[in-house]
Design a protein around this nucleic acid. Structure first.
Lengths: 216, 216
DNA sequence: TGTACATCAGTGAACGCGCGTTCACTGATGTAC
DNA sequence: TGTACATCAGTGAACGCGCGTTCACTGATGTAC
């Protein structure tokens, strides 16, 4: 029983939960936000929803399936963070600046998500299986984090900044860069002062981006 | 009791263990190699050494201290892997090629260690406190992974490939790149065929390195 | 060299804990007639 | 519209497990004299 009684539980006391599956996932996401994948504990999820521990087995085969569902939700949230940076940036006059600007925006969205939601970020990459419906890990644009990066790389190619045959290597490098930076800032570099974080992110995105484009 | 009786336990049956602390750390490292940090379980460590579970408390304040010790050993092993790549590469005629070659060698040593010892790699970055004696996480050269990277960056500067004031940003970018690539190859990219891994590593190291050096 | 004794590295048993999962069940829901 | 009944989403209790840690102890070691 939480500190605030849930209206539908006090008023109606419905025997059948409205949408228990959704409620379980939401509680599990909250646990992931608080403590990462290992904090997703089936009994605690049930406790928070106000249901007996075994009720979850009506909706999931077991803990691993619930964990995967949360991971996919984490990837979707990551995609939305990347989309938010794309929307927030100011468009550039020429095509080349525009393409680089978009690439850096998705990268910044990636790292910022990791820093603002470390538990969910860690959980997003702890999935054990791919989702059956790919739309489970997709942002508002319908693209996954992967798809958003690819779109940005296509922009680089279209602007003549990168040969098409380097796309795959560039994708791996960009992903590795932002993922590694996120991990470092949450781990070994966790005690750099918050004020220094943004410049570090910008510098790193600059150096990574510089490596991807063909020198003129 | 293992499948092979330990000689010193069957022959001499010494009451006091020769060097229990060292034996505990070795067993814990082995567990980390097999399953990462969460596989380091105090009771299992004691079981493998052939000692009662509480005996470990004569040498460690508790599980966290043992875990940190294994993490530092992992960092030392990482440093040695980087040193091995430095030693294995073929020296280059001119100073600039030599500097880039050394930088890529330490990067390759980093990623190869992660791929060959994933459990120990994960454990190396799960420490909760810094070692009191810094030589706990140092390779044969006396340098830590961090120190080896810095040495390589100094080489880049000395060769005139990079302005000194970019050193810090370059270090973060290089570290992020190899760390991220390691993480991806062990996670989301875990099912790229082993034959394709080396080319991917080389391409990524190439693109990261290209971003660090000043364009001419 | 021999003996008394403090030190300390181990033992054995037990503690409380919380977990994921299973069992047999109960009571609400909604459909067929 | 009313009733019988199958369905199914939940309950409550229990399971076995292994964990980290603590307790009072014991027996070997090594030093002082």
């Amino acid at each position: 029983m939480g500190i605030v009684a849930k209206p539908e539980l006090t008023k109606n006391v419905p025997y059948h939960h409205g949408n228990l599956r959704r409620a379980l996932v939401e509680a599990a996401v909250e646990l992931a936000r608080e403590g990462g994948p290992s904090a997703i504990v089936l009994r605690e999820v049930a406790r928070r929803v106000g249901v007996s521990p075994n009720a979850a087995y009506r909706h999931f085969s077991g803990l691993p399936e619930l964990l995967d569902t949360v991971a996919w939700a984490g990837l979707a949230a990551l995609a939305r963070s990347m989309e938010a940076e794309l929307a927030a940036r100011s468009p550039q006059p020429d095509a080349q600046s525009e393409a680089m600007n978009r690439l850096r925006a998705v990268g910044r969205g990636y790292v910022r998500f990791a820093l603002s939601e470390p538990g969910l970020f860690a959980t997003a990459f702890s999935y054990g299986s791919e989702p059956e419906e790919p739309e489970a890990c997709v942002g508002d644009s319908g693209l996954s984090p992967d798809g958003l990066l690819n779109e940005a790389l296509d922009g680089l190619i279209a602007a003549g900044l990168m040969p098409a045959e380097e796309k795959m290597a560039a994708g791996t490098t960009a992903w590795a860069g932002v993922h590694g930076l996120s991990t470092l800032l949450l781990g070994p570099l966790a005690d750099v002062p918050p004020a220094e974080r943004e410049p570090i992110i910008d510098e790193t995105l600059f150096l990574i981006g510089r490596g991807l484009v063909t020198r003129s």
